[in-house]
Structure formats: structure tokens, C-alpha cells
Design a protein around this nucleic acid. Structure first.
Length: 270
DNA sequence: CTGAAGACCTGCCTGC
DNA sequence: TGCAGGCAGGTCTTCA
């Protein structure tokens, strides 16, 4: 479901509600998510001190322990009243002091949760090989150019490679490439440094705008309060095959790159 | 090392 | 109405 903007919107919704609350009880209705859900009872009685994000992972800090949470394709994380009934596919529930109940729903069960030492979470296999955050200064034109050097894969595939840069999925890769005027199938290693610098800036712009709009809602995505995002209305190419390009009027096309649907404008992307 | 393809799961939509 | 097929925001493993 969610790419970086959606996860960040959820984080912003949850952080002020959870910070300072004590975890009272954990109810796990299905342990067979992407990885087996570990025993979370060790967290009971502890206080959630902070909710952070790394790439598409949410990081819930409980003093010296960290609960890392990935929403996969269809995961939803909601802050509800304790009394709210369990919805279909609600696999995990964390009840906090003050009557707040964190509910996890995930029809496809591609999501996962992990427990680790807060001091060394960056050494965990989920995080060890991740590239920079796209909205920090670590991700810029020179960095992207060095990451693309010698790579024969399509630029869209490189943008979606979490070892290169985290958080960019199928939607925002398509949108950023359209904004930068680069064809998604273009060989990454054969794009000029100037154009890759333009692309790095486009990535930042697209992600920032999506966060400001509350994320993109197609299918399952809702934020921690159950609200839809509005960025889908601003899509330039994603899901718009056959419709006119807002910039040049040509009909947008769809193709498959590395097994994923890709959308682009034959008029303004080369 | 790189890249391609298949795997994991359920739900929804299309077309016959 | 039913059923097969294709598709969906992610990422991990296997294989060449």
C-alpha cells in the first residue's frame, strides 16, 4: 500500500497520540504475517517515547526496545478507541493507556513487525543495507549519479531500489520521472549527471507535495485517523494510461518494467 | 557483482 | 450468477 509519503502521514498522525502512553495489552489474532509476529508482551508496561520512520518502516520506541513495523502492500494502522470492534483482517492490536487502541489491518499480510534493541536498530537486517532518505541532503544529484554509474537497469528500477534510496515505490517513481522528463525504461547508467540532478530534485518535490496532501489514496490507503489522502488527484501519469498528458496533451502510455506497471508520457519523457 | 523472475497473500475488477 | 484471469502501493529469494 504505502510508499514514503503515506507512511510519513501515518507517523505524523500517530506520534502525538502515542508519545507518553503506556502499553497495557497486546492482542495478536494472526501471527503469520510476512514473518512470524514475535511475542510483544515484553513491551507491556513500557511507555512509547517516540514514533519515527526509516524508509517505509515505522519505528515505535519503547525506551531501550524498538518495535519496527512495515505495512507491506495493504497494511493499515489506525488509532481507535479501545471499544472499537475488530474489523476484518485486523491481525494485531496494541492497547495503550488513556483508552487508545492501535489496530493493524492487512488483507494481504505482506506487512511485518520486528522487535529489536533501540540502540542498534540500524544494524538489523531490515535496515543495514538501506540507502539514504530521499528528503535529506544525503540524497542529491551527485549521489544519484554515483549510484547510477555503470548500472544497466532501467532508471525506474534503480529509483525503487531501497539500497540506492529508500521510500520510492511504483507510484512516486512514475511521478518523479515524469516531472524530470526522463523515460522510465532509460538505462540508468546512460543518463547525464545534469538530468539525474534534475531527477533527484523531482523526487524531493513529488514526495514533499504528497506528504503535504496527506498521501495518495488508491485502494486501501488511509491514515491513522482513517482519512483518505488527496494526492491521487494530483497524479500526472500513474494509472492514467490513455488519458492526455497535463503538460503536452499526448496520450499517456503504460508499459511493464521489472514486472511492474509503469506509466509515462511519450511526448515529454525521453 | 548485476538483473530477471518467481514467491508470498487476498480482494477486486473485467470478460466470457 | 459463476468462474478464470489479471491486476494491485513491497520486498525477499533464487537463479543465470
Amino acid at each position: 500500500m504505502p510508499e514514503l509519503p503515506e507512511v510519513e502521514v501515518i507517523r505524523r498522525g500517530l506520534a502525538p497520540q502515542l508519545a507518553g502512553r503506556r502499553l497495557l495489552a497486546v492482542v495478536c489474532r494472526r501471527r503469520d504475517l510476512r514473518y512470524p509476529v514475535p511475542d510483544l508482551d515484553v513491551l507491556c508496561g513500557r511507555t512509547c517515547t517516540n514514533v519515527a520512520r526509516r524508509g517505509k518502516y515505522l519505528l515505535f520506541f519503547f525506551d531501550e526496545l524498538l518495535l519496527a513495523w512495515h505495512l507491506g502492500m495493504s497494511g493499515q494502522l489506525l488509532a481507535l478507541p479501545q471499544a472499537a470492534a475488530a474489523a476484518k483482517h485486523e491481525h494485531l492490536r496494541l492497547d495503550f493507556s488513556g483508552g487508545l487502541s492501535l489496530r493493524y489491518r492487512d488483507a494481504r499480510r505482506f506487512g511485518c513487525v520486528g522487535l529489536m534493541a533501540a540502540a542498534r536498530w540500524q544494524d538489523h537486517p531490515w535496515f543495514r543495507h538501506l540507502g539514504p532518505e530521499p528528503l535529506t541532503s544525503d540524497f542529491d544529484g551527485p549521489y544519484l549519479a554515483s549510484a547510477c554509474r555503470g548500472r544497466r537497469a532501467a532508471i525506474k528500477q534503480v529509483l525503487m531500489d531501497a539500497r540506492v534510496v529508500v521510500g520510492i515505490g511504483n507510484i512516486y517513481a512514475a511521478e518523479a520521472l515524469h516531472l524530470a522528463g526522463i523515460h522510465p525504461a532509460r538505462t540508468a547508467g546512460r543518463i547525464s549527471k545534469a538530468r539525474l540532478t534534475h531527477l533527484a530534485a523531482a523526487v524531493k518535490q513529488v514526495l514533499s507535495r504528497a506528504i503535504a496532501a496527506g498521501g495518495s489514496s488508491i485502494r486501501d490507503y488511509i491514515d491513522a485517523a482513517g482519512r483518505s489522502g488527496y494526492f491521487a488527484y494530483a497524479f500526472q501519469v500513474y494509472g492514467r494510461a490513455g488519458l492526455p498528458c497535463h503538460r503536452c496533451g499526448r496520450r499517456l502510455r503504460r508499459c511493464t518494467i521489472a514486472g511492474r506497471s509503469s506509466f509515462y508520457c511519450p511526448g515529454c519523457q525521453h
